[in-house]
Design a protein around this nucleic acid. Structure first.
Length: 251
DNA sequence: AAGTAATGCATAA
DNA sequence: TATGCCTTACTTA
C-alpha cells in the first residue's frame, strides 16, 4: 500500500502525536529490541521518500521501511491489546501507533543515516530540493522515464501507482527517453502537486474531481479516451499506459 | 475457505 | 532471477 504520500502522512500524524513527549516503546512480537527507546523523549518523526526516521533523545535513530505490506494502526486507547505480529508499538498516554509487517525496522547510526540521505533522490513532498536540481537528476538518469521515476536515488517517494498516473497526467509514455527539461519539469510539478493531494487524502489522487478513480493504473481502458491500456514490465514492475494519450517524444 | 497479486526493495543466488 | 517480509484486497471454489 505505501508509497511516499502515505509515508509522509504517517510521519506527519506521528510527529504531531509523539514529538516532545515521552513514549513507551515495546515489541509485542519480540523481533525488535525496543529497550533502548522505552521511556525516552521523541525528538521527531520524519519521512524521507518511502523511509521513516524516528529520532529519540539519547538513542540511535530508528529506520522503518514499510515495503509492500507494512502498515501502521493507530489506537486512541494506548492500553488496547496489540495484534500479535506487532513489530513495534510507540505509545503516549493518549495514543498508540503499532507497526505491522514492515520490511525494515532497525536502529540506524549517524553514518548510515548520512548514507541513506545521500542515496535518496529529491522527494516531491519535502521542500528541500529545488525544481532545477530535481529536473537535472531525472535527465542525468539516461534510462526510460518510467524506470527513472521508480529509482529512489533519482526521485524518491514515487511507486508503481504514481508512476502510472503521473506519466499519464504529463502525457509521457513510460518508455520515453531523453524527454528534455521542459517535460521533466512538468513531471516534477505534477509529482509535487498530486502527491500532496494524495498525502492529504490518504490515497492516490490523480483526478481531484474523482479521487477514487485512476486514469490508467490497473485499468482495462483509458479513463479519458477508452483506448485499451497497454501493460508491460518496466523496471521489474507492471507499467500501464494509454497508447493514444501518452507519447514517446515529449511535445 | 482458500489462493493470489500487490502501491517495495534489500539481499541471496 | 528468486526470496522474504507474513498484511490486505480481491478472486475463485
Amino acid at each position: 500500500m505505501p508509497e511516499g504520500h502515505l509515508v509522509h502522512r504517517y510521519a506527519d500524524e506521528q510527529h504531531e502525536a509523539l514529538a516532545g513527549r515521552v513514549v513507551s516503546a515495546t515489541s509485542p512480537q519480540g523481533r525488535f529490541d525496543a529497550g533502548p527507546y522505552d521511556g525516552r523523549v521523541v525528538e521527531g518523526v520524519e519521512a524521507l521518500g518511502k523511509h521513516l526516521l524516528y529520532r529519540l533523545e539519547g538513542a540511535p535513530a530508528i529506520h522503518v521501511h514499510l515495503g509492500m505490506r507494512g502498515l501502521f494502526l493507530r489506537y486512541d486507547d494506548p492500553a488496547a491489546e496489540p495484534r500479535k505480529g506487532t513489530r513495534l508499538r510507540l505509545a503516549t498516554g493518549e495514543a498508540a501507533f503499532d507497526l505491522i509487517a514492515p520490511a525494515r525496522c532497525e536502529p540506524m547510526d549517524e553514518r548510515a543515516l548520512a548514507a541513506l540521505r545521500a542515496a535518496t533522490g529529491p522527494d516531491p513532498l519535502r521542500g528541500d530540493v529545488g525544481r532545477t536540481e530535481a529536473v537535472q537528476r531525472l535527465l542525468a538518469a539516461h534510462v526510460p522515464v518510467g524506470a527513472a521515476v521508480l529509482d529512489q536515488g533519482v526521485w524518491s517517494g514515487i511507486g508503481n501507482a504514481w508512476r502510472a498516473e503521473l506519466l499519464f497526467l504529463t502525457g509521457l509514455d513510460p518508455g520515453a527517453r531523453d524527454i528534455g527539461a521542459e517535460a521533466a519539469g512538468r513531471l516534477w510539478d505534477a509529482a509535487v502537486r498530486y502527491l500532496a493531494l494524495g498525502r492529504d487524502a490518504g490515497q492516490v489522487v490523480s483526478d481531484p474531481e474523482a479521487p477514487d478513480e485512476r486514469w490508467v493504473y490497473k485499468r482495462e481502458r483509458c479513463r479519458r479516451c477508452g483506448t485499451a491500456v497497454r501493460t508491460w514490465t518496466l523496471a521489474s514492475r507492471t507499467a500501464y499506459a494509454c497508447p493514444a494519450d501518452q507519447h514517446l517524444d515529449a511535445l
